[in-house]
Amino acid sequence: MSGVSGVSGVSGTRRIALWIVSTVAALVLLFSYRTSTMGASGPATVAETPAADTAASGGAAQAGATTAPGTKTYDGSVAETRWGPVQVRIAVSGGKIVDVAVPTYPTGNRRDKEINARALPILRKATLAAQGANIDTVSGATVTSEGYIESLQAALDAAHIS
C-alpha cells in the first residue's frame, strides 16, 4: 500500500494521458479490422447456383425442368436451420434418384463453409445409396444434416418417391 511512492505529478499525469491515447489508438485499430464489425450487419447466407441446372427453382413440391431425357428435377422446401436455410434438389429418372444438388446451404462464416464442404458430399452419397431420406446425420454437421434431410424429404414427396 503506497500512495506516494515516487510518482511526480507531471510525469504521472502525462503517463496516464499516454495510456489513454494508446488504448484508444489500439481500439480504433482493432475495430478497423473487417471481422470486428461484420456481425453488425447480420449473418450472411449465400445461395449458390447449382451448376447442372438452368431451370428456375420453384417452391416445394413443384416439378422442375427436364435436364436429360426422362430425368426430372424436384426442389425440396427450404429448411430453416440455426445457421441458415438449406435446400435440396434431386434429379429423378425412372423412379430413382440419379443426382442430388444442394443449391442453398449456410455459408455465413468460414466454419460453415468448412463443415458443409465436408458434410454435403457425404450426405449426397448417402442419399444416392439409400435412395431416400433414411440416412444418418453427419457427425459435426448435425444442423446442416437435419435441414438437408427435411428438404430432401419434401423433394421426395414432390417426386412421389416414398
Binding site: Y33, T35, M38, G39, N109
Partner: peptide, 8 residues
C-alpha cells in the same frame, strides 16, 4: 482472424 468479432 476470420470469424466475426473474434479479433476483439
Amino acid at each position: 482472424v476470420s470469424y466475426a468479432g473474434m479479433l476483439l
